[in-house]
Design a protein around this nucleic acid. Sequence first.
DNA 1: CTGCATCCGGGCCGATACTG
DNA 2: CAGTATCGGCCCGGATGCAG
Lengths: 214, 214
Amino acid sequence: MRSYHQYCALAKALDILGDRWTLLIVRELLIRPCRYGELQEGLPGVASNLLATRLHHLEESAVVRKAADGRYELSAWGRQLAEPVQALVRWGAPLMDRRGKDDAFQGRWLALLIELIFGGVDAARPPFVAEIRADGQAVTLESAEGRVVFRPGAAAAPNLVLTGPADAVVGLLSGRLDRAGAQAEGVSVLGDADTLARLRRPDWLSGPEACREA
Amino acid sequence: MRSYHQYCALAKALDILGDRWTLLIVRELLIRPCRYGELQEGLPGVASNLLATRLHHLEESAVVRKAADGRYELSAWGRQLAEPVQALVRWGAPLMDRRGKDDAFQGRWLALLIELIFGGVDAARPPFVAEIRADGQAVTLESAEGRVVFRPGAAAAPNLVLTGPADAVVGLLSGRLDRAGAQAEGVSVLGDADTLARLRRPDWLSGPEACREA
DNA sequence: CTGCATCCGGGCCGATACTG
DNA sequence: CAGTATCGGCCCGGATGCAG
């Protein structure tokens, strides 16, 4: 990308990150180190040459490094992008209330949203295991010792299993939909859905408070 | 911009913000509401048609609104971009250690960096007024009641006046350079430079700790 | 099969001219 | 002052090729 040639930290950051696809590559690498092919899977629609070019730029910029096993991974500096990316996810979260009909979805993308809604440590959180099958892709959300962690794949002994279309499941996770509302949108709720709400961050707001207007 | 067509909050946010120049327009509007011409000043190099197109998109997306006086301003949702933008500024701050020879500079861009370095409330902060003349553009940094505020323009009765090239002044503000180092880079220091350091946030790190490598 | 490089059509970007 | 119009060029998107 052409540099903005501005002596401003935001412009400098965007000189590195502002190209199309670049921040989505970072998203994938924040979730886990990736092979080239895994990145292609995780970035539906990216052109092969663009992916290669972006990765080279990110390597030159010391954001991404190629590990010994051939995987791409973030450098220490690159991992610090977790904050700005999470902030963008928080800002964009209200946009998740409607899913475009052509929108692709991957279960692991829930990792960012779950970190946003259930992040932090809170000793008052009860232990809990939820299995989430959004668009048929299973991921697990496990609360233990006050902390909620995300894992890909199914759970062994879940207290709750949510199955349904991704947007309805996200609505239930975020609190935009209640149990009845989510079921009306095609979510099957098996087990203890009430405890899930108690796991949310106290400062997590959804609905109209997260004003998208005015 | 073409949508990424991904049901992911980051992708949705970038569908709105990902175009070239868009986040820099938001930067200007975070600093103050702007007329079209002021935006052009604040965004050296932007093509007029692009600026108009971006503003229209941002209005459609309910991020920007045109006020009664003809100025453009952020909506409530748009103002919430302060967090992701500040996070990007924090991430990009290490890149401010070197200034490209063609880099433009505007005094008001220091507002974001100053908010980063001196933000928050800390009752232990002494009252203080610093006038900063970076590249000949005067801005004022005033500490009062534990809070540091940024204002454009010169100060009436400053405790400290820093004059010099923008990169050296930024080096001194951020702590990357000490008084002697900054003077070696052409900064003239008039008054109490030591108190300035006591105004910084305790969690503000500069130098090698803000790792850009490894 | 994975991990890219090459090629080409189309759309976005950049610079400037122009208008109300 | 506040945009709109225009055009060349570069970046992006999609398909294909190819080497380890």
